[in-house]
């Protein structure tokens, strides 16, 4: 199966030979469809998908939940971050069929334009976004990250593994570093998250 990463090398001469039998197999038969059911934003969803479909593409292309973004499709940018079972997941790096029975929350499940989640409202207030493309991932990541801190999950910069974790600026920045914002709204995003964390505490 091809991945975005392997395509990075372009159409290499001779490569297609190895692919040909696979192509014949696919051409001869029907797509390898798999059924999967999970809960998205509180609603049960059942899909029959090409087994190669990522969770991200299942959300965006099949359920039309396009709030989760495809920035790199190779797990490097964080724009596709959704919350699965309370934990942050880069949804481009995981196949939809691996989530049978899982509870998935996307940006659309956090709030709506008329009824913003506190984290969404804080991003608006602190201008923690510009182009908006990394924003849903940042917000999902931030919401789940605060719960990780509360649960005592340490990070690279946690000094004392036995103490309660304090959400210092360094902790926040370290934990959010999987979500790239090329517009450079980091300073504002940190303020938005800090405000929400303070309110929660």
């Amino acid at each position: 199966m091809g991945t975005a990463a392997s395509v990075a090398l372009g159409a290499t001469a001779g490569r297609a030979e190895a692919q040909a039998p696979l192509a014949q197999t696919l051409a001869a038969g029907t797509p390898s469809l798999s059924k999967v059911s999970f809960t998205v934003n509180g609603a049960a969803r059942e899909l029959e998908l090409d087994a190669r479909t990522t969770l991200l593409d299942a959300l965006r292309e099949h359920l039309h939940l396009t709030g989760s973004k495809k920035g790199c499709d190779q797990g490097q940018c964080g724009a596709c971050t959704v919350i699965v079972g309370g934990r942050r997941v880069t949804s481009c790096l995981t196949l939809a069929v691996m989530h049978q029975g899982h509870d998935i929350t996307t940006i659309e499940g956090l709030g709506t334009p008329e009824n913003l989640h506190p984290m969404q409202a804080a991003f608006v207030k602190h201008d923690g976004y510009q182009c908006g493309y990394c924003t849903p991932g940042q917000i999902c990541s931030a919401v789940a990250m605060l719960n990780e801190v509360k649960a005592g999950i340490p990070s690279h910069v946690t000094a004392d593994l036995n103490a309660d974790i304090e959400l210092t600026n360094a902790e926040l920045r370290e934990r959010m570093s999987g979500n790239i914002c090329r517009c450079g709204a980091y300073s504002n995003i940190a303020e938005a998250i800090t405000e929400v964390a303070g309110r929660q505490a």
């Binding site: 199966m1 159409a11 001469a13 297609a16 030979e17 692919q19 292309e61």
Partner: peptide, 15 residues
């Protein structure tokens, strides 16, 4: 589908 297009894209044999 995206998956089909991606897969077929890698079947081009280019000299």
């Amino acid at each position: 589908t995206f998956e089909q297009a991606r897969d077929a894209g890698q079947m081009l044999r280019v000299d």
